[in-house]
Nucleic acid binder design. Structure first.
Lengths: 340, 340
DNA sequence: TTGAAAGCGCTACCAG
DNA sequence: CTGGTAGCGCTTTCAA
């Protein structure tokens, strides 16, 4: 590989009989320089294709213009949209993003945090794993003066700006929609109750049921651990074969809803006529299933974008990291599976 | 934000009455040091939580241990799996990845390349945009001694290792499967003929048709430009309403196949009985459509992983960048849409 | 086995 | 308006 000797600031200075400082200033647009000097330097730099050495600049300024971003999984429609949004905004402000994933395991999240911290990222965007019940590894960022912004899956163990959708309200609205469609016996395939989003959705579900004078039954709530299609199938089977079959199911996320639909269809139970289904997250595939799946869109791209914006704002203004909450509006997407 | 003063190599040296060089050597495991010195330094570093300043190391060594990766889109099942694979392998070798997307536009690809080059990445993994018909912006990496590895969507304008699936053979096999199922009038919703993958698939389709003595008709080949569901619907409509309706359609990718299925279903044409459908790429949703969609899995994760491996290999051995081809095996996934 | 010292490329402070 | 210069933290010769 042919290494091409790169021209440096000093080279330009020597060639132009200027001092390195002057050249630096000219290139970085400082005010107190004569027009002609600036032009001369810029012309020369352009002509000789000068590229500043980023590593030297980073080193000197003690910053990298790189943000770290940790999500549970990259191969996941919602998270990939948040990444998309974060990258777009980061780019706009001259930042790059180094990605890492936790696979929803604390061990991996800690490893990734340390790696990113070691890399010298300027700040961190994170959606924590299901297992994250403490935040020492994140506090380490704050201790080094590097701000952290949490989004979607958050932990209260870290004082930092937090960006979420209103899971409670979204679930409430989704279930209310089912009720308005005439469903009366609504079950819930929920998630782990120690995971905040899941718990909020559960509360929203329950509140909607109770506000509308419907019966709340413990045995109509099933906790999915892996949030998988398989669990959706199995719990739906349990529900339907119990003495008290529901006439609608509100699912913690679309993949669980798919499992529910698969089971019902295998038993020739008509969706939405006999049983209505509501998902959550609005995965891309929800529009392609048969019947199409009603869901709640979380506007992942907007969320990623906003999270990056918050972080960059803190970076630019050297703001202190505070415990503020921000909300992204959700959108109820009504398709076939929930319309009687 | 409370900045905590980080301890440096010099601090350790002073404290231990050693020279910085000795400390550096101790920490980096040089051979010619006494056991006790090494232990003393390591203990001290550990105890005082010494973290080397990556920026200084990068600067000094003139490398970042960061790989650049450019894909057309991140929010795309196949590409997100390649990213997953690349990240996993990169991590294993101590590399990080900075992502960028081209949105399938040359302009954005060039911008991203320059950005990554400026960031000082050690090498580049890229799947080029549809518009990439020259490679100056990629050659710039090679000119600086930074290796480039292309994967999936490649351009011949750059001499570099290339990693692809055998689109020709995969298409040939997929179409052959349709023929064996008894379909005789097979159409093809193809892509842009100036995009290599698309052209290869087209050739595979055509060869399979001809090898089995079936009729090849120009008007059974429709070129999709955006590779969208909408195009899938429209071209399928055209095909079905022409005098010569096909009895199977081989689609350039799954999303086009979904469009085809939507149109057929809107006309109550039975899949796979009346018309068989074959996709390509094996998007996650192919397993959830009704009927489920047969497709070709490209093993994206393996591809990303292998691409990273090739790049890191070059980096480690300082190998020259050569024009070698590597192949990832595909897998024909037969589901309902293609089985009469 | 260890130390001294140079220097990577750049920025920023202090002078003039 | 411009120059001189120190120094960021680390690695790596060269010398001892």
């Amino acid at each position: 590989m042919a290494e091409k000797r790169k021209i440096t600031l000093k080279d330009i200075a020597k060639e132009l009989n200027l001092s390195p400082s002057t050249v630096s200033r000219a290139l970085n647009g400082y005010p107190s320089l004569s027009e002609e000097t600036i032009q001369m330097v810029k012309d020369y730099a352009e002509k000789h294709n000068y590229i500043p050495n980023t590593m030297a600049v980073n080193f000197r300024k003690n910053r990298t213009s790189i943000l770290g971003m940790i999500v549970p999984q990259i191969v996941h429609h919602f998270f990939s949209t948040t990444i998309d949004g974060a990258m777009e905004t980061a780019k706009k402000h001259g930042y790059s993003i180094i990605l890492a994933q936790s696979q929803d395991m604390l061990k991996d999240e800690i490893r990734a945090s340390q790696h990113l911290l070691g890399m010298g990222v300027d700040g961190l965007l994170i959606s924590v794993s299901n297992e994250t019940k403490e935040a020492e590894h994140l506090q380490a960022f704050l201790d080094e003066g590097k701000p952290v912004v949490q989004f979607d899956k958050i932990t209260d163990y870290l004082v930092s700006p937090k960006l979420v959708v209103d899971d409670f309200q979204s679930a409430y609205d989704a279930v209310t929609h089912l009720i308005k469609q005439g469903y009366r016996k609504i079950a819930h395939l929920s998630g782990r109750m120690d995971v905040k989003n899941a718990h909020e959705r559960y509360k929203g579900y329950r509140k909607a049921i109770e506000d509308h004078g419907l019966e709340f039954r413990e045995d109509w709530v099933k906790n999915c651990w892996e949030i998988s299609e398989k669990e959706g199938m199995e719990f739906t089977k349990e529900l339907m074969e119990s003495g008290n079959a529901p006439d609608a199911i509100f699912c913690i996320t679309d993949v669980v809803a798919l499992g529910a639909m698969k089971h019902l269809q295998s038993k020739s139970i008509a969706i939405p006529q006999q049983v209505g289904i509501m998902g959550f997250s609005n995965w891309m595939l929800s529009d392609y299933t048969s019947p199409t799946l009603s869901s709640v869109d979380q506007h992942g791209k907007a969320m990623g974008s906003k999270a990056a914006e918050l972080l960059i704002e803190i970076l630019k203004n050297q703001d202190p990291v505070t415990d503020e909450f921000h909300e992204i509006k959700t959108e109820l997407i009504i398709r076939e599976s929930s319309q009687k």
